[in-house]
């Protein structure tokens, strides 16, 4: 029973870490390609925040797993089916609008979740969440402003935001469909689905964007069934450790 509890907790922690790491990896693709220098730095800062968060969580997972596991092994030597991130974070960057919308949708979710976690019973996790919450608050503010700026911008930016919303919306449902390990080891994500939607509607309202209705929601990421993009992300992210195991510099 204890072992089972522990394995759910480990899965849950890995899920949190994978969300942050994969989104960080996606955002980092902008490094050197941002629309302007200042925003290039902003998005890569966010990447680094997310990598920092994932490191904290992976270290905790490694401690629970024990043996010779460490954060690097968890990040670089697991296969696609072992990653438990939501489908949303692995979606391609698309244009700047799609990237900042993905960040906004995720940050709003992450904010609500980490708020819950920060007052949770697991001391380690609540400390990690409390620290991350300050970063997430900024990610949320930054990405909200971009959604409004582009949604309520020119005709072209508005059209692109609509396209981005249509592209990403089918991946938002999964955030609130708890996997087995979430039910056992985490706060109830389905409980804050409506709070999330209210916040999204608020910003979309300012941006002149509508929330799509009756969209079929994709899922599977949490249990390792990823979209076709995931393999490419891991191939790029893990190539160095897999080619030169234990490499350091």
């Amino acid at each position: 029973m204890i072992a089972q509890m522990n394995s759910s907790l480990i899965d849950y922690i890995l899920h949190l870490a994978d969300n942050s790491l994969i989104l960080a990896q996606r955002n980092s693709e902008w490094c050197g390609h941002g629309p302007v220098l200042e925003q290039d730095i902003a998005i890569t800062n966010i990447s680094l925040d997310l990598i920092g968060q994932s490191r904290n969580v992976y270290q905790y997972a490694a401690k629970l797993i024990g043996g010779d596991t460490d954060e690097d092994k968890l990040a670089y030597l697991r296969t696609e089916r072992e990653f438990k991130n939501c489908l949303l974070v692995e979606q391609p960057n698309g244009d700047w609008g799609q990237t900042i919308l993905r960040q906004f949708l995720f940050s709003q979710y992450q904010y609500l979740l980490y708020e819950k976690l920060s007052s949770g019973a697991d001391e380690q996790l609540s400390a990690i969440a409390a620290k991350a919450l300050k970063e997430v608050a900024y990610h949320l503010r930054w990405s909200s402003e971009w959604v409004i700026r582009l949604g309520d911008g020119t005709e072209e930016s508005h059209d692109r935001m609509i396209k981005a919303v249509n592209e990403l919306w089918p991946y938002t449902g999964e955030l609130f469909m708890p996997a087995e390990f979430e039910l056992k080891a985490g706060p109830d994500v389905s409980a804050f689905a409506s709070a999330w939607l209210e916040k999204i509607k608020g910003v979309f309202g300012d941006a002149g964007l509508a929330v799509p209705e009756k969209v079929f929601m994709q899922s599977g990421g949490k249990t390792g069934t990823h979209t076709e993009h995931m393999g490419y992300i891991l191939a790029e992210m893990q190539t160095l450790q897999r080619t030169y195991p234990g490499a350091s510099w």
Binding site: I41, N45, R141, E145, R149
Partner: peptide
């Protein structure tokens, strides 16, 4: 110095560029 569309963005950009 830096580029930004308005004061709010200038302060956020400054936060990202000069206070990291």
């Amino acid at each position: 110095s830096l580029h930004a569309t308005d004061a709010a963005m200038a302060i956020e950009n400054a936060r990202d560029v000069y206070t990291r």
